[in-house]
């Protein structure tokens, strides 16, 4: 394959990581971190396949998948925003619960359903979202009063409260949006990448790669989308990297995880010297 082919394949395979990462970026911009992304993706993948297999069409499946992610993120909203439980603990609990619930849904027998073919109208819309959403979110975050409010809450919660900003409402909205986007991401993995099938471990930790991409893109919508795309490029070029380096093919799956750890280290070193780049303080 030539470079252009890899770039195009990476876009198709990168859709779930980009969508999930953009959703998580919104959550972290509002000053919270939802570590449940991987679980929300897995749960929505299972739910979307089950609904599509029952209804016979991927569109209700896609909607159900988005709502499945939203449902899990609502647990996070209630417990973290409402009850003020530890956000890290709740996030990891959602990650683990989501993976288990996904297998539980699949155990009902609805593991194969209709799929969304490459190049179909629906597929093109989903791919286009990865280009439109970063720009739309950039405009919302930096050019509208809502975006200013959201970012202000992420930078300093106590000042935002003092100024009368709707901290809890804004966070509920961003967390729900993040859940919805992780849900669509999971449904996309099942419908497009794995031909309408669900299997245990379908996400393969991509939810975590998405959370890593948020930091790599430095919480900027365009940056996050590019970082997630770069991770996806790394995933699709794995076989090539392995054969170039003379590695056995079975060891190849480790590359994106090691690359993200290295990239996080580099980003941390580079940004430490620039005090003007202040990230929101979710983690």
């Amino acid at each position: 394959m030539v470079l252009a082919d890899f770039m195009a394949t990476a876009l198709i395979w990168g859709v779930p990581i980009i969508l999930a990462a953009l959703g998580e970026m919104l959550v972290e911009r509002s000053g919270r971190v939802n570590l449940g992304v991987d679980g929300m993706m897995a749960f929505s993948a299972a739910v979307s396949v089950a609904v599509a297999s029952i209804t016979g069409s991927p569109i209700p499946g896609l909607i159900a998948g988005g709502l499945a992610g939203l449902a899990l993120s609502t647990i996070y909203t209630i417990t973290v925003v409402g009850l003020k439980l530890d956000q890290i603990v709740v996030g990891l609990i959602i990650a683990l619960t989501g993976l288990g619930l996904a297998d539980l849904v699949a155990s009902t027998g609805h593991k194969i359903g209709p799929y969304i073919p490459y190049g179909s109208m629906l597929h093109n819309i989903l791919v286009a979202m990865t280009v439109i959403l970063p720009i739309a979110l950039w405009i919302i975050l930096y050019r509208t009063p809502y975006g200013v409010e959201l970012r202000a809450i992420g930078y300093d919660e106590s000042i935002a409260r003092e100024r009368g900003l709707r901290v809890d409402l804004v966070r509920a909205i961003t967390i729900s949006t993040g859940g919805l986007m992780a849900g669509v991401a999971g449904a996309y993995m099942a419908f497009v990448l794995y031909n309408g099938r669900y299997f245990s471990g379908i996400t393969g930790g991509w939810g975590w790669l998405a959370i890593g991409s948020v930091i790599l893109g430095y919480w900027h919508p365009v940056g996050v989308a590019l970082a997630a795309y770069a991770v996806s490029l790394l995933i699709v070029t794995r076989p090539l990297i392995a054969s170039e380096l003379g590695l056995p093919p079975t060891i190849v799956p480790i590359t994106p995880y090691i690359a993200v750890v290295i990239a996080l280290t580099i980003v941390s070193i580079v940004t430490r010297r620039k005090p003007s780049l202040i990230p929101p303080k979710p983690l």
Partner: peptide
């Protein structure tokens, strides 16, 4: 020393070890 978030780093390493184990078992 590098201010890398320990949750993410440790999770990534979990996947690395999982795939190393799979590699050993299948190769």
């Amino acid at each position: 020393y590098f201010n890398v978030n320990e949750i993410l780093a440790s999770l990534m390493l979990n996947y690395v070890i999982l795939y190393v184990s799979n590699h050993l078992a299948s190769g």
